[in-house]
């Protein structure tokens, strides 16, 4: 296989989303960890904790989404 611009672009797109997903993955794991521990200690507050956990996950996920945007730009636009 020869290394040309197209190959490099595809490699870059793969790396962009692959590396960009590491951080948010760890973050979401920590969030769920904290939320589940909180629910375990105080099951009555489960509803409130879940809502806040989902919001936190949405913010953590946004970082992965930025990586996805870069990957899509590399794949389809650049």
């Amino acid at each position: 296989m020869q290394i040309d611009a197209l190959t490099m672009r595809q490699l870059a797109a793969g790396l962009a989303i692959g590396l960009g997903a590491i951080g948010p993955g760890i973050g979401i794991g920590l969030l769920a960890n904290g939320a589940l521990q909180a629910i375990g200690r105080n099951p009555e507050a489960a509803g409130q904790i879940q809502v806040n956990m989902i919001l936190g996950i949405a913010f953590a996920e946004a970082i992965a989404i930025y990586a996805l945007v870069v990957a899509l730009l590399l794949k389809f636009v650049a």
Binding site: A58, E61, A62, A64, I65, Y66, L68, V69
Partner: peptide
């Protein structure tokens, strides 16, 4: 930006 791409990214993916 994050509103746009969060929904788009999740559903497109």
């Amino acid at each position: 930006i994050s509103f746009t791409f969060r929904l788009f990214g999740n559903i497109f993916a």
